[in-house]
Structure formats: C-alpha cells, structure tokens
C-alpha cells in the first residue's frame, strides 16, 4: 500500500513539476515579448529622458545582488527541504521573503522618484516599455512573496507533507526563474542603458 502510494506520489511529482516548468517557459516567452518591445522602442524617448539620464547603476546593482542572494537562500531552503528539516525550511524561506520584500521596496522607491519627476509611463514609448518590463517582473515577485507567505504558514501548521514538498519545489523554481529574468533586465535595461 505504501509502495503504491510512493509510486503515485512519484508520478504526481514528475508530471506536476514538468507541467510547472512548461508554464514557466510560457512566462519566459511573455517576458521575451517585453524584451523585444523594449529593444525596439528604447530609442523612442520623444521629448523625455533616455536611459542614461534616469538609471542609477549602483542602485540597480544593489537590487541585483539582493535578488541574487534571495535566489541562493531559496536554494538553501530547498536543500533543507530535501533533508526534511522543517525549521531550516522556515528560516531560509523567511530570509528569502525578507530579501524579496527589500528588492520590491527599492524598486518602488525608484519608480516613485521617476513619477515625481514627471517621467512616468505616459511620457514616451521608452518609458512605457521600461515601466512595463520592470513592473511585470515586480508583479511576479509580489505574487511569489504572497505564495511564500502562505506556504510558510502551511509549513508551520502542518509540517512538511508530500504535497507541500512538491509545492515548495515549484515555488523555488519560480523564484530562481525570476532571478534569471532579472539578470537580463539588469543587463539589457540598466547596463546597456548606461553605455
């Protein structure tokens, strides 16, 4: 009976993780369209500022390092999960959550500054594509943080069940994927904007 259950769990894990991976690929493609749009429209500054004028590279680097570290701590959380260590799972996902939240706050302050200056998404095609690309990433981060919070509540109350282990694995895939997208945002938007 237990053997049958383990077999069933293995099949469910396999198809669910694969299915989620496929979904992540489609999400990546959505970002691809945003990147294509940014690449085509970033020169259309109309009468507004260009990237060089509004991007603060050290600030962007800080955001990048924070997010990268959070991807690392998410990995450590999964390492703890694989060792069935409930407390370490809570610790590392907790740190990931705080780092993710800091990233979001930093990003929002950057947006706030731009809007106050009058350089909002309505100003030019360049600004529209910048805001939409970075905000889409930010919305994904927000969704991930919500997901993380609910998952941590579940871990605290029920402990690590097979279903929860599977869902935490999916969450870590999602979080790693968001950092990968950010590598390209950092490179294409901020670094290239400064060249």
């Amino acid at each position: 009976m237990i053997h049958h259950q383990n077999h069933q769990e293995a099949i469910t894990n396999d198809k669910t993780i694969f299915g989620f991976w496929v979904y992540l690929m489609t999400d990546l493609l959505m970002f691809g369209v945003l990147f294509a749009t940014y690449s085509v429209l970033h020169g259309n500054i109309f009468n507004g500022p260009s990237g060089k004028e509004i991007f603060d590279l050290p600030f962007a680097l800080t955001e990048t390092i924070i997010l990268l570290t959070s991807s690392f701590t998410a990995g450590l959380a999964i390492w703890a999960l694989r060792n069935n260590n409930k407390n370490q799972v809570l610790l590392w996902f907790g740190i990931t959550f705080l780092l993710g939240l800091s990233f979001l706050v930093l990003e929002l302050t950057e947006f706030h500054k731009l809007v106050l200056e009058g350089d909002s998404w309505r100003r030019s095609a360049f600004l529209s594509s910048y805001f939409s690309l970075v905000s889409t990433h930010g919305l994904h981060i927000t969704a991930g943080l919500f997901w993380m919070l609910i998952s941590l509540i579940k871990v605290k109350s029920q402990g690590i069940t097979p279903g929860l282990a599977r869902k935490l694995t999916l969450l870590s895939l999602f979080w790693h994927f968001l950092d990968i997208v950010w590598i390209f945002i950092f490179t294409v938007v901020y670094l290239m904007g400064a060249i």
Binding site: N6, I17, W79, R82, N83, A165
Partner: peptide, 14 residues
C-alpha cells in the same frame, strides 16, 4: 532533478 524523492535524501546527495 530527481522527482521521486523530494524530502529524504542521503548525506552524499545533500
């Protein structure tokens, strides 16, 4: 990704 075993791995894998 070894999808079968999500929570109980041995020391070397860890």
């Amino acid at each position: 990704m070894n999808n079968e075993n999500l929570t109980n791995i041995n020391k070397t894998e860890s």
